[in-house]
Structure formats: C-alpha cells, structure tokens
Write a protein that binds this DNA or RNA. Sequence first.
DNA 1: TTCACGGTCTCTGTATACACACGCGCATTC
DNA 2: GAATGCGCGTGTGTATACAGAGACCGTGAA
Lengths: 227, 227
Amino acid sequence: MYTETVKSAPERASDRAYRVLRDEILDGVLPAGTVLLEVEQSARLGVSRTPLRSAVARLVADGLVAGRSGRGFSVTEMSVESINDLYELREALEERAATLAARRDDRTAFGMLRDRFVAAPALLEAGEAGIHEYYALIDEFDAAIDAAVDNSFLVGALVTVRTHLARIRRVARGNPVRLRAAAAEHLLILDAIIDGDAALAAHATHVHLHLSLASVLAVLEATETTS
Amino acid sequence: MYTETVKSAPERASDRAYRVLRDEILDGVLPAGTVLLEVEQSARLGVSRTPLRSAVARLVADGLVAGRSGRGFSVTEMSVESINDLYELREALEERAATLAARRDDRTAFGMLRDRFVAAPALLEAGEAGIHEYYALIDEFDAAIDAAVDNSFLVGALVTVRTHLARIRRVARGNPVRLRAAAAEHLLILDAIIDGDAALAAHATHVHLHLSLASVLAVLEATETTS
DNA sequence: TTCACGGTCTCTGTATACACACGCGCATTC
DNA sequence: GAATGCGCGTGTGTATACAGAGACCGTGAA
C-alpha cells in the first residue's frame, strides 16, 4: 500500500494549533470553562494569532469551545443533560450504522475484529498499556463501521459524536469491570453483523449504549457527591 | 418581550461574507465546482482576505466547500450517491426526532401547525408567493420539531442536514403535485405527533422521506437525460 | 512531435500593525 | 453611601505586507 506520510502532510501551523488544543480539551488538560485568550494561547503554542484564530474557529464548529459574547472564548461545559442529549443522538446514528453494516455484502473485516474482541478480556488484565490497546481496538471497530456504512454524511455525524464522547470517556477509563462488559456487548454486536441480522445488530447496539450511558451517569454521580 | 434587533447584531464582516457565500451556494448562484479564490471573493464582497478566510473555513466545516490540495477552494458537488447518503442520515435523525416529539408532554405547537397544513393545498395554487409561504411553513414545522426534541446535538445534526437539503430542494421547487402530496404527508406526521403515537410518527416520517427522495431522484434523472 | 525541465507567476499561509468595542475601576455628585 | 459617568486597559476584528509552495507555460532537446 502507498503510504503517504512524508510529503502529503505539510502540517500547517493552524492545523497544529487545532490538533494540540483539541487534544488538550479532550484529555481534560483544558477543563470545561477554561478561557482561551488569543494572545496567550498563540504565545504558548508558538504560532501567530491568525492561525490560532482559525484553530479556535474549527473548535467552535466542533462545539468544543464557544464564543462568549464580548470577551474571549471558553471551553464548553459537559453537563449531565448534554451527555443524555449526546447519547440520544448517538443511539440514532449507531443503531442505523449497525443496521447498515449488517446488511452489507462484504463483512469479512468484522470477522477479523471478532477474534480480537474475544481476546479483549485478557487485554484488560494487562494494566494501563492493555487498556490503551483496548481503546485502539474500539477505534478499529468504529473504523470498520465507518467503512461498512460508506456514507460521508452519516460518518461525519458519527465523528462529531465520537469527538464529544472522548471527553466523557475519561470518567469511565478506570473501570475495568465496565470495560469487560462493554467488550462482551461489542462481541454480540459483531456476531449480529456477521450473521447479517440487522435487527439484532441494532438492538444489541441500543442495549450497549443504554448500559454505557448508565455507567457514565453512575460514575458522574459518584464523583459529584464526592467533590 | 424584549426585542434585541438594534445593538445585539454588530454583524462582523466575516459573518456577512459567510452568510452571502452560503446563500449563494444554496441558491445555486455559485454552482457546484465553482472555484473560490480569496482575493477575488474578498474584492467582490468588499471585505479583506482575513474575514473571508474565516467565512470559507466555516463553509468547509459545513461541507459546502472543500479545499483542493494546492489551489484554492471549490463548491462541493452534490452527486446522486451523496443525495442518497444525505437521505440515509436524514431518515435516522428525523425518525428519531418525530419519535421524541410524539413522546413530549406539550404538543400544542403542533396542533396550531396542523390547521395551517390543512390550508396548505390552497396556498400552493397561489403561484410563486404561495410556494414561498409554503416553504416558510415547512421551516416552522422544522422549528417546532427542534423545540420539541430539545436536544442541541440532535438539532445540530438536523441543521446540517437541512443545509445540504436546501441545495437539492431547488430541483423539486417547481413541482406543485409533489408539494401537495408532501403537505398531506406532513399532516399525517403531525396527527401522529398530536396523538402521541410515536411509532406512527416515525413510520410516517419514513414514508415521507422515501417519497421525497424518490421524487428528487426522478427529477434529477429527467434533467440528466435532458442536458 | 512529444516529453522533460526550468522559470515565473499566482495563490494560500503566516505575521503583524491598527482600529474599535466592551468592561472595569475610579472619581464625583446627589 | 450609593449611583452614574468618564477614562483607560485589554482583547477581539480587520487590513495588509511578506514568504513559500504549487501549477502552468514556454522552450529546448530527443
């Protein structure tokens, strides 16, 4: 395969600023409510104000930051309601995506993924590195879904959802019990897709998302009362 | 009610450039494939390159224009596949939206809309002005749905879909037969929502979108063979 | 006649300088 | 003591100048 790593990525300064700020927001380095001042951030990231403005504009389009009326921009909050809203949209999109994947002719990619999800529980015993690898596996699952639905609009909406999801995934990161259950749920979805059972794929996805949301809300409520 | 029409809208140059370009793309003044050069467009719109860059960046985020590797930006094409893809996403979103609207407690807004959709066929006899008013009614229907679902993520996705939909709605504009049928379909959806029948609302939406897509594709195929 | 190479030109990416608007703080007045 | 008005500082919005990269065109050689 032709790997285009060298010349195809001039990596503009605005791209770098966007990527860095986005990762920092997603990783929680820049918590919700953080005010982003143009001069301050441009100095910190070593770029001029112009590319930084471009980066912030893209973050606004992503919904990760919002412009405050007069003064500066700030990282958006992730309230409990917004999490419920996000999962509402996620349900609509992923159920449809699972349905389409199950109806697709070529489902060999999912067969290969299945084997690796079977081995996932062992992965989750391997500490932080294993958890990291597990999330990489989830990413590959998502990528396989994207390739199967083959719909730029639907995939685009899914990407947006996953961006916001990355912010709240942090809270469930240190919960191996939940992750093991999630692996089993993914396995069921994969089996349904491989069998071409669109209805089961959609319903298994629904169940998975229901349990995922319940877990997130439980963790959130626990940390809420703690702090 | 406090109307904030005077001071709340400084209307930045970048906003104006974005709005003008967006409207021109949606109205077909700038057809698909049109190349947007920064200096040329900034001169035409009477703004500098900086706000124009910002406007183009927003259009890229909307998916209305795409950056061509080296040279400039161009208005994206609306192929038959992309229209099918758009309707695939639209189905997932609007079925869910209709379901949520039917489950909502306060559905009085839909009752008022119903009366006006009953009168819609008469509207469609009134020439271009009537058709314009009919589309305004559709916008109010969409707005009522948005208010009912009360979910910024879902509404955001719907807004994106409607943006692209506006581009292809032009082809069906001069088809009063289809518009009359569409009004009847909307009426059925409204009745289902008012009755709190979520399943019927979703299924009626599905039917409406199926017929809408079929109409668009038929018109497109007819114009394709003509030209 | 065709292909390849080089020059030039144009357009985007970036940096910086300037203007304006909002807001805060202080002083003055009622 | 409180409220209002004025002035200043800070931060975004805009314009423009500069640099680099890519493409197109022309010319020369095979």
